[in-house]
Design a binder for these strands. Structure first.
Length: 580
RNA sequence: GCGCACGUAGCUCAGUUGGAUUAGAGCGUCGGUCUACGGAACCGAAGGCCGCAGGUUCGAGUCCUGCCGUGCGCACCA
């Protein structure tokens, strides 16, 4: 048989063929569902097992155990002949295959041939999409805190995984630099600036009270000197009375300064972005409709064209109820100002214009109430396809301090920043910690405990396995390098080696499942299991064996584990050190 | 009140899209292992009516319904 048999996919495909043949031979006009293989937890259930007969039997009018028996026999007499010694039908109709050493050695050969690209492109080509993934997207009014760190880590890992399995991924940061919050930010900066220049200009009650604005004010003075002092003197103490022009300039300057900090922090956290789209840019451009230009104007024109806008109480409303929302929503306030929602509609229109086949927004749970209206508005826009937009709601971070719950507030300036976290435990530990739990679960984060326990972070367990392998291979003649294309020696494959190879064989399925369910934490869990399998193997199987064939086989196995660990860690934004 | 999530070991969490007497891991607790390649390791023990009650089927931690508990929302803020 061909090389294609030497991984789980190949096995599944050949079993699928046997199943289809059996159904056809039985005269059944039934299309069998896709055969899926699982690796049983118990050795007596074989090396791989499938419930395909169990699932198919009813539809095909067959008895499950009888069907499993027939499929197994057909397969073993055909493609399975060389790689499988026997099969068993067990329980209600499971088909258990007992693979032989030929299969395991062939699997290792295949792993070594794929090297660091093992698992890459695991997604069938027709399923690949041009995707846009938007995450973090916080308004640039203050430092990134640990809550943002979670979404940054989650989104980044998800992007890496989606790209690795085959999607074309654009990572995007939406900069909320428009609207009320930004105005308050500009005023707060003005107030701090005035204070630094000796004026009595308190930060407005609704403003941003954090100390970081004092630092930013110092930076501002270093840049522009006292250029804005006269304007402030004229309004002391009330910075909200400043001319819009002055506030606007300060706002933009502050925005850029904060964004520069974002970039540094995110780079440090190993979270790169391809595109930064400022909300304000959506208002720039031609095509004015209802007084707004740019994408905003075009969106309003689109919606008017669909007869979905109406005016009431001096505001312009969108009939989101026509698309499942529980009430209509304001797009243009009575004051004439646009709502955040209007910006967001324009933003999604813009993304569609840019030709993405699929869009993902990652939001915090505190925004989940916003989902129905966003979905509704998205559906209202051409091409009226709700499936193109996926809204992922991640649960929040519950910050604890010595076991006590601690509320963060950016406006109050009471926050634990991303930089604080990274300073305290390092990037690797932080990334591994933040992406270790399902996005559906609130993350309990006790900073003190995290610092105290950082040296027992599971990340080191995985990294240690990697470093250990590097060390072992260095001790081998030739540094453990194998001649390309040469098959591993025909040695007996022991139980620990089999377990390790089984763990390796799961990697592509883990990636596909992590990608499909948007769950990077599955990669996190897998890495722990793979590392554990390796440590057990190491304990029982000496690599630097006197038997040259055994040594070569085990060195090959180590090499495959090393590259898989490195690939998996890389997908989580964690380094794979050669020594530690 | 309504909506969306989540309730699994002392703590933090997995559970491969419904699979196989015995539901797993880390930390913590207790007890072991090494004349060899990295002890940040390995092995074992204790610890569970998987929130509660029904239902669906060959089979449920997983799906449905209802309760209970926790979190987050319910703006012409973002």
């Amino acid at each position: 048989m061909t090389d294609d048999l030497y991984d789980l996919n190949g096995l599944a495909a050949s079993l699928q063929a046997a199943l289809d043949e059996e159904l056809t031979a039985g005269g059944a006009e039934v299309k069998a569902p896709a055969v899926e293989l699982t690796l049983p937890a118990r050795p007596e259930h074989g090396d791989v097992t499938t419930n395909a007969a169990l699932i198919t039997a009813k539809r095909a009018g067959r008895v499950p155990r009888e069907l499993a028996e027939a499929v197994g026999g057909r397969w073993l007499a055909g493609p399975g002949a060389g790689v499988c010694d026997r099969f068993e039908v067990a329980g209600p109709g499971f088909l258990n295959l007992f693979l032989n050493d030929t299969w395991y050695r062939g699997a290792l050969d295949k792993l070594l041939a794929e090297g660091v690209d093992y698992g890459r492109g695991a997604l069938p080509v027709p399923q690949r999409k041009r995707m846009n993934i938007e995450f973090v997207s916080v308004n640039p009014t203050g430092p990134l805190h640990v809550g943002h760190a979670r979404y940054a880590s989650y989104g980044d890992a998800l992007c890496r995984i989606l790209a690795f399995v085959g999607h074309d991924v654009t990572r995007e940061f939406y900069v909320n630099d428009y609207g009320t919050q930004m105005l308050r930010f500009g005023q707060s900066l003005a107030a701090r600036y005035g204070q630094r220049l000796g004026l009595d200009t308190p930060v407005p009650e609704e403003g941003y009270q954090g100390d970081y604005l004092l630092d930013l004010a110092d930076e501002l003075i270093a840049t522009v000197g006292d250029r804005y002092k006269p304007a402030l003197e004229a309004v002391v103490p009330d910075v909200t009375a400043l001319p819009a022009e002055v506030t606007g300039e300060l706002k933009l300057w502050g925005r850029d300064a904060i964004l520069a900090q974002f970039r540094v922090t995110l780079e440090r956290l190993r979270v790169p972005f391809d595109v930064w789209t400022p909300e304000s840019s959506l208002y720039e451009g031609d095509g004015v409709h209802r007084g707004f230009g740019g994408e905003v104007g075009k969106s309003l024109a689109d919606l008017d064209g669909e007869d979905l806008l109406y005016d009431e109480d001096g505001a312009a409303w969108l009939k989101t109820t026509q698309y499942g929302d529980d009430k209509d929503r304001v797009l243009i306030r009575g004051t004439g100002d646009p709502t955040y929602f209007l910006s967001d509609i324009a933003y999604h229109r813009d993304k569609m214009d840019r030709g993405f086949e699929h869009m993902i927004d990652i939001w915090g749970a505190d925004h989940h109430g916003y989902v129905p209206r966003m979905k509704a508005a998205f559906t209202a826009l051409p091409p009226h396809d709700p499936d193109k937009l996926e809204l992922i709601i991640g649960q929040l971070v519950n910050l604890l301090e010595s076991g006590e719950s601690r509320r963060m507030s950016k406006r109050r300036g009471d926050i634990v920043t991303v930089d604080d976290l990274v300073d305290a435990i390092g990037v690797d530990a932080a990334r591994f910690l933040l992406v270790g739990r399902s996005q559906d679960t609130t993350l309990e984060l006790d900073i003190d405990l995290a610092v105290q326990q950082s040296n027992q972070n599971p990340v080191y367990y995985v990294q240690y396995a990697h470093a250990r392998i590097c060390s072992i291979l260095k001790n081998l003649p030739g540094g453990g390098e194998r001649p390309a294309g040469e098959a591993v020696p025909a040695v007996t494959v022991g139980p620990h080696e089999r377990s390790l190879l089984q763990a390796l064989a799961r990697f592509p399925d883990v990636l596909l499942s992590a990608a499909d369910t948007r769950s990077p934490h599955r990669v996190h869990g897998y890495l722990g299991e793979l590392a554990a399998e390796f440590h057990v193997f190491y304990r029982h199987c000496r690599v630097l064996s006197d038997d040259a064939d055994v040594a070569a086989f085990r060195a090959g196995l180590c090499t495959a584990v090393r590259s898989t660990l490195a690939a998996g860690l890389g997908l989580l934004g964690v380094s794979a050190p050669e020594s530690m």
